[in-house]
Amino acid sequence: MNTPYKNAKLHDCRDAFTATLEALAGQNSDIVAVCNDSVGSSKLGNFREQFPERLINVGIAEQNMVGVGAGLANGGKIPFVCAAAPFLTGRALEQIKADVAYSQTNVKLVGISSGMAYGELGPTHHSIEDFAWIRALPNVPVIAPADRAETAAAIRWAAQYEGGCFLRLSRVGVPDLLPDDHVFELGKANMLRDGHDVTLIANGVLTHRAMIAAALLEARGISARVLNMASVRPIDEAAIIDAAHATGAIVTCEEHTIFGGLGSAVAEVVVDHAPVPMTRLGVPGVFAHTASANTLLDDFGMAPDAIAQSAEALIGRKG
């Protein structure tokens, strides 16, 4: 990747997640963490040091883990259920549906190393269906923060929100994009850059790639708006409709299959309210080949350059 962020320091958002969770747990003794032999990969080692009794490790048993989370919520606790995203969402999907969504329990589902963060470990360890799966369920907001400030803000928001939610975190390094004091608002996108020729909508590890793409487009005389859309459900309909009207073309970028994720969610709003040409970038409905996380994003047409090219091609289709 060639980039404005070339020299920017990259951060693993799990650190912001656990630092924030530890701080909140210090203030609120009802906060507990639940995990599946994932103390290391969820970076809960420090949490365990500080609150040994409030770290509930059920072992390698994800269905049990989510059920236990729902029971803890019933007992007045605020469980942050943390596990590798593919096993949390894929393995325990029915528990998420019945015990969290349908029963409306206060369970914070934290999917760690989501998307294709596990790279070479292969498709069993990729979580590129979770937007689609969880977005299909009522009562569970779906949130994919883009950097450490937004991760911390989303965790603070989740702790005080009355209800279940799904936070989709990565482990792949990203630069700082949002201000340190960022406040997360459910269902609100952040315009990181204004523009009038095309809008790039992204979240998670794709947001900074979209920002780089916008800079590349600017160098070619194209003005791109960039919306960071962490909240996939509920989605910011007003921001999408405004982007459609103001720029007339929308490219979505996501670390997810293009079937049912962010691009689909945006397209649903676009077709209903403001039809404009769209391109949905993401994993094109295949199981990934062997490669590292960032290489896979490049291979699937989401290198900043390729995003810029897709945007240019889309502009050519405007009416």
Binding site: Y118, E120, L121, G122, T290, A291, T295
Partner: peptide
């Protein structure tokens, strides 16, 4: 093993 496009990823296929 684990190289770009290898048939041998971290879990058997």
């Amino acid at each position: 093993f684990l190289k770009h496009n290898s048939a041998l990823n971290g879990h058997p296929n």
